[in-house]
Design a protein around this nucleic acid. Structure first.
Lengths: 348, 348
DNA sequence: CCATGAATAGAAAGCGCTTGCTGTACTGCT
DNA sequence: AGCAGTACAGCAAGCGCTTTCTATTCATGG
């Protein structure tokens, strides 16, 4: 039924071993023989059996990329960059690898299950993107899994995710705290003193770090904080819309709204507009990430640019062993403040 | 070093066969035995060897999802929906499958290579999303590959892609032609007579179909077409920006710009604004797809809503054999015209 | 009380490939 | 001419699992 190595070998009048070596190219084979084999492969339309190969060689060409939400460009951009470096078909890396993107939906158990599935497939490398969940139990479980993966020879890289100590994982962490601080400092510098903050889901590290940066900036400027000024929500537009209305209800005198990310900021803008407020005339808005659409918003969004593509590419190269990991296995990637039209001096 | 089935068997005092059967659960095993085995699995922290399993069983739990551009929400949304139905960890489907997203970048050869890789892995199913390339050679090559996959027992589903006759692939096709036609009819109805059209890459089916719909509408209304009114570009914002400037240069009297998709439309909006034109006061703009950010544009975008998530979910279910394929293996998914703020009556 | 069959467990034969080791035929020295 | 050295090619032993077929046990009914 299906063509096997042996069939090719028979047709090319060589042993299966030789065919295997031609296909893997890591052992000397005479040019004429090679040619004969390749011809047979072609004629028989032979396709290597991946599982068999992986079993015999005890490694596979699978590389896993875990993302929280594949429909979110934040992850899409990183995944795309990672994948382009992983090689994959047509990538500049040699050897064909199957870079696979796994959508965890941010659900801890799914993350774990995917990790197991990848472990089961004896993945060559795994890249985890996006913030982690703060839950200690889950964190420990993931750490244990990562350690096991590393032990089994799978290279593990974290991209835009806090380090996982003692797991052997390389971490490229975004400086969310610094970015958040810079952003709020910008608004404070403009003269804002009553700033609403729409945070992401409470249990995520990213959420906490960005919020901490915000608060650090406030504290540094001696601005007292009102607990009513912080609302938690999801990392999406609708959440931003609702949270903004809530913020406005709690304190209509706010002059600025800082959002957990750009999507949330867009929702905030919509809510402000629908409330008859002008941006930035009445209220300034700031986002985070600088996704492609942020510059197209009207007014364009003041935000913190995260080098998603660059970080992803680097993570990909490290995962493939084509770039030295950073010293200590940890690197911090900084964001860049992008001041645009959505922020201005406060009214009055 | 690594724990194998045999180790578990030894610990549980049963044969490897029994362990396998407990793990796969398709053969009667006494409750007490099962329990003992599961305990051993747990204690040894055993993880099934995927490749070995796939080799022996001649099938794998891999499901491939091919997308043109993973950083584009158009594909992200579909992929997400497909994946949620594939099962994957935590999905509602039983049995854990590794749903993997492969980023082809729209490059024909990559598409082919990924298909081969998936074939090599003996994937359980493959879903191809997005428009295909018109090139006959490549089309034939893909068709041949799909046929082979189908023969090998891999279920093949096309989502948002034209049917591939005689390959055994199920196709869920978007009615790009109808959507394009409806959209242009809307603008014609408002009174527009000079409409610019920013098309996607020339060689893609999606591009051609949308353009055909546009032209059909023009023809039906007896509006003569000016070749200067059509520009081809990529499916991204920047392309839309540049194309719009070009369009304006060619004919400053245009009263409407129809874009290949929403990203392009956003670029068009930016270009118009930068040219000092008001939307829709001076020029109306229309997009296609209705991606999440389109409603947030200012003014919000008139566009054709494609039920990406619904279609993806359906494709996923069909791929998993949990939903009957449509009669004839082909179904057309219609878009819905969304009239919003970016389109209005022409000036003058 | 034994034949009958259901329920359950085991033995063993691969699945298709990789790779360490073992030839075998040259090549180039001395 | 004789020997080491090199360049290929083949043999065969698995890799870790699934599954068919066979063996055993135990309950049942004639």
């Amino acid at each position: 039924m299906t063509v096997t190595l042996a069939d090719v070998a028979a047709r090319a009048q060589v042993s299966p071993a030789t065919v295997s070596r031609v296909l893997n190219g890591n052992y000397p084979v005479a040019a004429s023989t090679r040619e004969r084999v390749l011809k047979a492969v072609d004629e028989l339309d032979y396709v290597l059996n991946g599982p068999a190969s992986a079993l015999a060689a005890a490694t596979s060409d699978l590389v896993g990329i875990l993302v929280n939400d594949i429909a979110d460009p934040f992850f899409g951009i990183m995944a795309s960059a990672i994948q382009s470096e992983i090689g994959g078909p047509g990538g500049r890396a040699g050897g064909e690898r199957l870079a696979v993107v796994c959508n965890t939906g941010g659900v801890p158990e799914r993350e774990l299950t995917y990790l197991t599935l990848l472990q089961r497939q004896r993945a060559a490398a795994v890249v985890l993107t996006g913030g982690a969940v703060e839950d200690a139990t889950h964190k420990a479980a993931v750490a244990a899994k990562l350690r096991k993966l590393a032990e089994a020879g799978t290279r593990v890289v974290l991209c835009g995710r806090p380090p996982a100590p003692e797991t052997g994982a390389i971490a490229l962490t975004f400086d969310n705290r610094g970015g958040g601080r810079e952003l709020t400092e910008h608004l404070l510098g403009l003269g804002h003193r009553r700033l609403g903050y729409i945070a992401g889901p409470e249990e995520r590290t990213t959420t906490r770090h960005r919020l901490e940066g915000h608060r650090a900036a406030l504290a540094a400027h001696g601005v007292a904080e009102d607990p009513r000024w912080t609302v938690h929500g999801r990392y999406d537009r609708q959440s931003g819309y609702e949270a903004t209305l809530e913020l406005l209800r709690r304190d209509p005198s706010l002059t600025a709204v800082v959002a957990a990310n750009d999507s949330v900021a867009l929702g905030a803008c919509a809510a402000l507009r629908d409330s008859g407020l002008r941006i930035p005339g009445d209220v300034s808005v700031a986002g985070f990430d600088d996704l492609p659409f942020s510059i197209d918003a009207v007014p364009s969004l003041t935000t913190v640019r995260l080098p998603l593509a660059e970080a992803g590419a680097r993570a990909g190269r490290i995962a493939m062993g084509r770039e030295e990991p950073p010293p200590g296995g940890i690197a911090t990637v900084r964001g860049e403040l992008m001041v645009r039209g959505s922020s201005g001096v406060p009214r009055g």
